[in-house]
Each structure stands twice: as structure tokens, then as C-alpha cells.
Design a protein around this nucleic acid. Structure first.
Lengths: 192, 192
DNA sequence: CCATTCGGTCAACGGTCGTAGAATCAACGC
DNA sequence: GCGTTGATTCTACGACCGTTGACCGAATGG
């Protein structure tokens, strides 16, 4: 438990400051979106001066890019059923855990033009995986619809605060959504 | 066809200016969201001075409120199947028509605090109708999920520009979504 | 024909923002 | 110990925003 030193070294100080700034940035971007988030507010929330934020991150855009990095959520490959179920579980996890991470991006998509590109780029591998797992010729569209449902549910729960969605348990939600996912992932009977 | 007068009366001039401002506002709010939309830009797009916008609409917030008025999209009541189908058709219409109207609100939800309330308020009657038509005890949640899907699809098509969603025809989309809507609107077999 | 209304413009205000650069001060290498 | 580096703050600039109030000129109405 003994700290290596009571007084932090310079490198440690810098890393610590950068991380506090990043955390404050994520939080603020998530709450306010890109435009309403000011560097001054982020700096103040991190307990530092606005100039320091600029010094470390260069510009507001670059700060946002760093704050909005998304861990890229790998999806195991397999049959369309398996992938649908995996996507469902991934949604459940996002509904159960801290929303801050995805909220920052989600909320900023509508304010920052680059954010939409970034978000699309981040979700693309997952989308491609999904597409490849679906055996129909309209797999791309089906995968996009699945993605739309996931994002719609998250947005409506956290941004719009629809009471029924905000109060429901993740399990309840994904149980209701399962038939949807299955019908989209695996072409059911269907004509042709 | 003869115009009643070559020179417009004052009242006509005012109405015409107000409408041009409103149209420009809707367009700009839809493209840029609330924050990035400036009164000066709206005024310039409408070919008038920024002061005039203030003069007629009072403030940016009030202008937004006027520009973001949504026609409230009535949903016919009936069995859950019928209502689900009606909701599906309504989605098809929104995918086929001009997106500007709902886009302004959608894009501004995250920047203007009132926009989320307004959006929720606008969708609430529809949500209640949906809820009442669904026979299960978790009808509220099911209706919210349906709403989330609708909004997710619209957002992903117009804001995120997912290619497969943006290119697909409304019919194709609602055909794929139909089983989803049915499974959510009418409790299928399901345990209990 | 003249006074009044009113659509519309102009210039300016207070405020805030992103950003740059000088200034401060403690930690570091020698 | 001392010069240097680097983390951090301070101050200020320039741009832009929402909003205001004075101002202009043409239509209006008596």
C-alpha cells in the first residue's frame, strides 16, 4: 500500500492532470454536447486553467477526439443467431453500465459534424461483422436497422429520458427486443 | 390568375417575411442544430436583417419554438396490430417525405434543453395511444421501444447517413421492420 | 397633404468563447 | 548550487453571438 513517494514526480503530475482533464471532458461533453461544452468549463471541472487544456490537447476539436475515443466493442463472429444474441448482450451491457462514454459521442453527433463521421467509423467494423453474419442479400440494410435500434434505444433512454425505458431493467428490454433482433438477423420464412 | 395587386400590401409583406424567416430557420436548425444556428445566418438566408428576426420572434428560443412546431401526427386507434401497422406507415411517410421538419427538432434535442421536452411532449399522445392499444402489462415499455426504433431509424438515416439506410426505399425498410413491430405490439406466444 | 404607423436596416452593447503568449514557480540534471 | 526545463497560471486579443434601440422610408388613413 505504501505510495512510492509522497510527492509526485513531474511525469506523474502531467499524466494525472491529463487524465483528470479527459475525465472532465468526457463528462461535460456527455452532459452538454460539443458546442455547449467550453474549454473553460472542462478546465474548471478538472481543477486546472484553460490554457493548460490547450497546452496538452492543442484545440477543442482534438480534446473532443481524445475524449470521444470509443473502445470499439468487438463482436464475436458466428451464425447470424449467435451474432444477434451477442449484439443483444452488448446492448444489455451498455444499458447496465455507465452511460457517460457512449453518451458523449451520441450527444455530440448532432452538434459536431466530425462526430458523426467518427461515430460511423467507430461502428463500422461491428456493422461489417453483422453484415457478414446475415445470410440474406439485404444483409447490409438489416445490419443497419439493428444498429439503428440499438442506438435508438440508448438515445431514448438516456437523452430523451422516456420514463418506461429509463426505468426498465436491461434484461426486460433485451427480452422484448430479442424477437426483433432474430427476425432481422435471420430472414424468417418471408417471401422469396 | 390575375394577382390582386402588383404591389403587395403591408400585411402581405410581413407575412411573407415571417414565412421566409421560418423556412430559413427550419432549414438551418435542421442542418446545424440549435447552438450552431445563428440568428444572423437565418436572417441572411431569409434575405433580411437580424434585427428583424428579433423584432418578429422575440428571441432565438422563441424562433426555435416556432420553427420546431411539429404537426403531431395522429395515429388511428384500433387493435394492436392495426396500430402497429399505422405506426409503420407513418414511419414510411416520414422516410419518404422531406426530413427538414423533424430533423430540426431531432438535431437540436441535444443542444437545446427544451427541445428534448418538446420532442417528448410532441410524441406523447402517440405514445399513449400506442400504449393503450397494446394488451400486455408492459405496454408502456413496448410502446417506448417502438418509438425508439422509429426515431433510431430516422436518426441513423438522416443524421448518421448510414449508406444502406440512406439508400434503401421506405417500403423495403418498413417491410423488414414489420415483424419487429408485430412482435412488440402483440405479445406473441411468450412465456406468461 | 400631413401625421402616423410599421416594415425594415444599422450600429453598437455586453458577454463569452477559442486561443496565444508572456509570466511564475517548483522540480530536475549536472 | 544553478541554469534549465516543464507544468501551470495569468492576461489579453480578436471574433462572434444575442439582443437592443435609434433610425429611415414607404405605405396608410384621416
Amino acid at each position: 500500500m505504501a505510495e512510492p513517494s509522497a510527492r509526485p514526480t513531474r511525469a506523474q503530475q502531467r499524466r494525472q492532470s491529463e487524465e483528470r482533464i479527459l475525465a472532465a471532458a468526457r463528462q461535460t461533453f456527455a452532459e452538454l454536447g460539443y458546442d455547449r461544452t467550453t474549454i473553460r468549463a472542462v478546465a474548471s471541472a478538472a481543477g486546472v486553467d484553460a490554457g493548460l487544456v490547450m497546452h496538452y490537447f492543442g484545440s477543442k476539436d482534438l480534446l473532443f477526439a481524445r475524449a470521444a475515443e470509443v473502445p470499439a466493442n468487438e463482436l464475436p463472429s458466428g451464425t447470424s443467431d449467435e451474432v444477434a444474441e451477442a449484439l443483444l448482450r452488448s446492448l444489455g451491457r451498455r444499458l447496465a453500465g455507465e452511460p457517460t462514454a457512449s453518451l458523449a459521442v451520441l450527444r455530440s453527433i448532432l452538434t459536431n459534424a466530425d462526430a458523426a463521421d467518427r461515430y460511423r467509423a467507430a461502428g463500422e467494423p461491428q456493422l461489417n461483422q453483422l453484415t457478414e453474419a446475415i445470410p440474406t442479400s439485404d444483409a447490409g440494410l438489416r445490419a443497419s436497422l439493428l444498429s439503428a435500434i440499438v442506438h435508438g434505444v440508448i438515445a431514448e433512454r438516456y437523452l430523451l429520458n422516456l420514463t418506461h425505458l429509463a426505468d426498465a431493467s436491461p434484461e426486460q428490454i433485451i427480452d422484448l427486443l430479442r424477437p426483433c433482433f432474430q427476425s432481422l438477423a435471420t430472414a424468417p420464412s418471408a417471401e422469396q
